[in-house]
Lab assay of single mutants.
Amino acid sequence: TEDEKKIQELLKRANGDVSKAEKLAQSQGNEELARRLREYANK
Rank of each mutant, 00 (worst) to 15 (best):
residue 43 K to Y: 11
residue 25 A to W: 02
residue 13 R to F: 09
residue 10 L to R: 01
residue 17 D to N: 08
residue 8 Q to K: 13
residue 10 L to Q: 01
residue 28 Q to S: 10
residue 43 K to R: 12
residue 36 R to V: 06
residue 36 R to A: 11
residue 14 A to M: 08
residue 17 D to M: 03
residue 30 N to E: 11
residue 43 K to V: 09
residue 33 L to C: 06
residue 19 S to R: 14
residue 2 E to S: 11
residue 16 G to H: 05
residue 20 K to C: 15
residue 10 L to F: 12
residue 25 A to E: 01
residue 27 S to D: 14
residue 35 R to A: 10
residue 35 R to I: 08
residue 4 E to K: 07
residue 22 E to L: 15
residue 31 E to G: 07
residue 28 Q to W: 12
residue 22 E to F: 11
residue 15 N to R: 10
residue 36 R to Q: 11
residue 20 K to Y: 12
residue 8 Q to G: 05
residue 41 A to H: 08
residue 20 K to A: 13
residue 31 E to H: 14
residue 32 E to Y: 11
residue 34 A to M: 07
residue 23 K to W: 12
residue 42 N to K: 14
residue 31 E to R: 07
residue 2 E to Y: 13
residue 11 L to D: 00
residue 25 A to M: 03
residue 14 A to T: 12
residue 4 E to S: 08
residue 32 E to I: 06
residue 36 R to Y: 07
residue 14 A to D: 00
residue 21 A to C: 09
residue 41 A to C: 14
residue 10 L to N: 00
residue 10 L to G: 00
residue 39 E to A: 08
residue 36 R to F: 06
residue 10 L to D: 00
residue 33 L to R: 00
residue 24 L to D: 05
residue 21 A to P: 00
residue 6 K to D: 14
residue 23 K to A: 13
residue 11 L to I: 10
residue 26 Q to C: 15
residue 22 E to R: 05
residue 12 K to P: 00
residue 8 Q to C: 15
residue 43 K to C: 09
residue 10 L to I: 08
residue 20 K to W: 10
residue 31 E to Y: 15
residue 29 G to A: 03
residue 14 A to L: 05
residue 12 K to S: 09
residue 12 K to N: 09
residue 7 I to R: 01
residue 29 G to D: 04
residue 41 A to E: 04
residue 40 Y to I: 07
residue 40 Y to M: 11
residue 35 R to E: 06
residue 32 E to R: 08
residue 1 T to Y: 13
residue 35 R to T: 06
residue 24 L to V: 04
residue 36 R to D: 02
residue 13 R to H: 07
residue 23 K to H: 08
residue 22 E to W: 11
residue 41 A to P: 02
residue 37 L to M: 06
residue 18 V to M: 06
residue 21 A to K: 00
residue 5 K to R: 13
residue 19 S to W: 13
residue 8 Q to T: 08
residue 39 E to M: 06
residue 31 E to N: 09
residue 36 R to S: 05
residue 7 I to E: 01
residue 25 A to Q: 02
residue 17 D to Y: 03
residue 30 N to D: 15
residue 32 E to N: 07
residue 24 L to W: 13
residue 33 L to T: 02
residue 16 G to D: 03
residue 4 E to V: 11
residue 15 N to K: 10
residue 29 G to C: 06
residue 15 N to E: 07
residue 1 T to D: 14
residue 40 Y to W: 13
residue 17 D to Q: 03
residue 9 E to D: 10
residue 41 A to F: 13
residue 26 Q to P: 00
residue 1 T to F: 13
residue 4 E to Q: 09
residue 40 Y to K: 03
residue 27 S to G: 08
residue 7 I to D: 01
residue 28 Q to H: 07
residue 33 L to W: 05
residue 4 E to G: 06
residue 27 S to H: 08
residue 39 E to K: 04
residue 4 E to P: 04
residue 29 G to S: 03
residue 19 S to A: 13
residue 2 E to M: 11
residue 4 E to T: 09
residue 33 L to Q: 01
residue 11 L to W: 02
residue 18 V to C: 07
residue 18 V to W: 15
residue 38 R to V: 06
residue 31 E to L: 13
residue 29 G to Y: 08
residue 11 L to G: 00
residue 17 D to A: 02
residue 39 E to Y: 06
residue 15 N to T: 02
residue 16 G to Y: 14
residue 13 R to W: 15
residue 32 E to A: 09
residue 16 G to K: 02
residue 3 D to H: 08
residue 21 A to S: 01
residue 36 R to G: 02
residue 28 Q to R: 05
residue 22 E to Q: 08
residue 9 E to K: 05
residue 7 I to Q: 02
residue 38 R to T: 03
residue 28 Q to N: 07
residue 5 K to M: 12
residue 4 E to D: 12
residue 3 D to V: 14
residue 21 A to M: 03
residue 34 A to D: 00
residue 41 A to V: 12
residue 17 D to I: 05
residue 15 N to Q: 09
residue 19 S to N: 12
residue 10 L to P: 00
residue 42 N to E: 11
residue 12 K to W: 11
residue 28 Q to Y: 10
residue 9 E to Q: 08
residue 21 A to N: 00
residue 16 G to F: 11
residue 5 K to T: 09
residue 20 K to V: 14
residue 7 I to Y: 05
residue 13 R to E: 10
residue 6 K to T: 12
residue 10 L to W: 08
residue 9 E to R: 05
residue 16 G to N: 06
residue 43 K to L: 12
residue 10 L to A: 06
residue 35 R to L: 10
residue 43 K to G: 08
residue 38 R to P: 00
residue 35 R to V: 07
residue 32 E to Q: 08
residue 29 G to L: 03
residue 17 D to K: 03
residue 35 R to C: 09
residue 41 A to R: 10
residue 18 V to R: 04
residue 19 S to E: 13
residue 33 L to Y: 03
residue 7 I to V: 06
residue 9 E to H: 05
residue 42 N to V: 10
residue 7 I to W: 05
residue 12 K to T: 08
residue 29 G to R: 03
residue 6 K to H: 09
residue 7 I to A: 04
residue 17 D to T: 02
residue 2 E to R: 08
residue 8 Q to S: 07
residue 36 R to L: 15
residue 36 R to P: 00
residue 2 E to F: 13
residue 32 E to S: 08
residue 39 E to L: 06
residue 7 I to K: 01
residue 19 S to D: 13
residue 17 D to H: 03
residue 34 A to Y: 04
residue 12 K to Y: 09
residue 28 Q to T: 10
residue 33 L to V: 04
residue 36 R to I: 12
residue 30 N to V: 03
residue 15 N to Y: 07
residue 16 G to I: 02
residue 27 S to I: 11
residue 11 L to P: 00
residue 26 Q to R: 15
residue 9 E to I: 07
residue 16 G to E: 02
residue 19 S to Q: 12
residue 39 E to Q: 07
residue 38 R to E: 02
residue 20 K to T: 09
residue 37 L to H: 00
residue 28 Q to V: 08
residue 42 N to M: 13
residue 23 K to G: 06
residue 29 G to T: 02
residue 25 A to N: 00
residue 40 Y to C: 06
residue 18 V to Q: 03
residue 24 L to I: 11
residue 26 Q to Y: 12
residue 29 G to Q: 04
residue 35 R to M: 11
residue 32 E to D: 11
residue 28 Q to A: 11
residue 21 A to E: 01
residue 17 D to R: 03
residue 40 Y to Q: 04
residue 11 L to A: 00
residue 42 N to Q: 13
residue 41 A to K: 08
residue 20 K to P: 01
residue 18 V to A: 07
residue 32 E to H: 08
residue 17 D to F: 04
residue 16 G to T: 01
residue 6 K to G: 07
residue 27 S to F: 09
residue 33 L to M: 06
residue 25 A to P: 00
residue 6 K to P: 04
residue 32 E to V: 06
residue 5 K to D: 11
residue 18 V to G: 03
residue 14 A to G: 02
residue 43 K to Q: 12
residue 24 L to K: 03
residue 5 K to V: 11
residue 43 K to W: 11
residue 26 Q to D: 04
residue 35 R to Y: 05
residue 14 A to I: 02
residue 5 K to G: 09
residue 17 D to G: 01
residue 37 L to Y: 01
residue 16 G to V: 01
residue 2 E to K: 07
residue 1 T to R: 11
residue 25 A to G: 01
residue 11 L to H: 00
residue 35 R to P: 01
residue 40 Y to E: 02
residue 13 R to S: 08
residue 22 E to S: 09
residue 7 I to T: 02
residue 24 L to H: 04
residue 6 K to F: 13
residue 13 R to I: 13
residue 28 Q to E: 15
residue 26 Q to M: 15
residue 21 A to H: 00
residue 31 E to A: 11
residue 24 L to A: 04
residue 14 A to H: 05
residue 14 A to N: 03
residue 4 E to Y: 14
residue 34 A to W: 05
residue 28 Q to G: 06
residue 13 R to M: 14
residue 8 Q to H: 10
residue 5 K to H: 10
residue 16 G to P: 00
residue 25 A to T: 01
residue 42 N to I: 11
residue 39 E to N: 05
residue 3 D to A: 10
residue 32 E to L: 08
residue 29 G to W: 04
residue 15 N to A: 07
residue 5 K to Q: 12
residue 18 V to K: 03
residue 8 Q to E: 09
residue 37 L to D: 00
residue 41 A to Q: 07
residue 9 E to W: 07
residue 30 N to K: 06
residue 37 L to P: 00
residue 18 V to N: 02
residue 6 K to M: 15
residue 37 L to F: 04
residue 36 R to N: 04
residue 3 D to M: 15
residue 3 D to Y: 15
residue 31 E to Q: 10
residue 32 E to P: 04
residue 30 N to G: 15
residue 16 G to S: 03
residue 5 K to W: 14
residue 29 G to H: 05
residue 5 K to N: 08
residue 8 Q to L: 14
residue 24 L to P: 01
residue 15 N to P: 01
residue 13 R to Y: 09
residue 23 K to L: 11
residue 29 G to E: 04
residue 23 K to Y: 09
residue 23 K to E: 12
residue 38 R to L: 05
residue 27 S to A: 14
residue 26 Q to I: 15
residue 14 A to Q: 03
residue 37 L to K: 00
residue 26 Q to T: 08
residue 26 Q to W: 12
residue 38 R to W: 05
residue 2 E to H: 09
residue 38 R to N: 03
residue 18 V to S: 04
residue 26 Q to N: 06
residue 21 A to R: 01
residue 26 Q to G: 04
residue 25 A to K: 01
residue 38 R to I: 05
residue 17 D to W: 05
residue 5 K to A: 12
residue 14 A to K: 01
residue 9 E to P: 00
residue 41 A to W: 14
residue 26 Q to V: 13
residue 12 K to A: 13
residue 27 S to K: 10
residue 36 R to M: 15
residue 23 K to Q: 13
residue 12 K to I: 10
residue 30 N to C: 14
residue 15 N to H: 11
residue 7 I to S: 02
residue 24 L to S: 03
residue 34 A to T: 03
residue 35 R to S: 06
residue 20 K to N: 05
residue 34 A to K: 04
residue 41 A to S: 07
residue 6 K to W: 14
residue 5 K to F: 11
residue 3 D to N: 09
residue 31 E to F: 15
residue 34 A to E: 02
residue 9 E to A: 09
residue 39 E to D: 08
residue 16 G to A: 02
residue 7 I to P: 01
residue 34 A to C: 07
residue 2 E to P: 10
residue 36 R to W: 07
residue 13 R to P: 00
residue 21 A to L: 04
residue 13 R to K: 10
residue 19 S to I: 12
residue 6 K to N: 09
residue 30 N to F: 13
residue 14 A to C: 15
residue 3 D to L: 15
residue 9 E to L: 08
residue 7 I to L: 13
residue 29 G to F: 06
residue 40 Y to N: 02
residue 2 E to A: 11
residue 1 T to G: 11
residue 15 N to F: 08
residue 7 I to H: 01
residue 24 L to C: 06
residue 25 A to V: 03
residue 42 N to T: 12
residue 36 R to C: 07
residue 30 N to T: 04
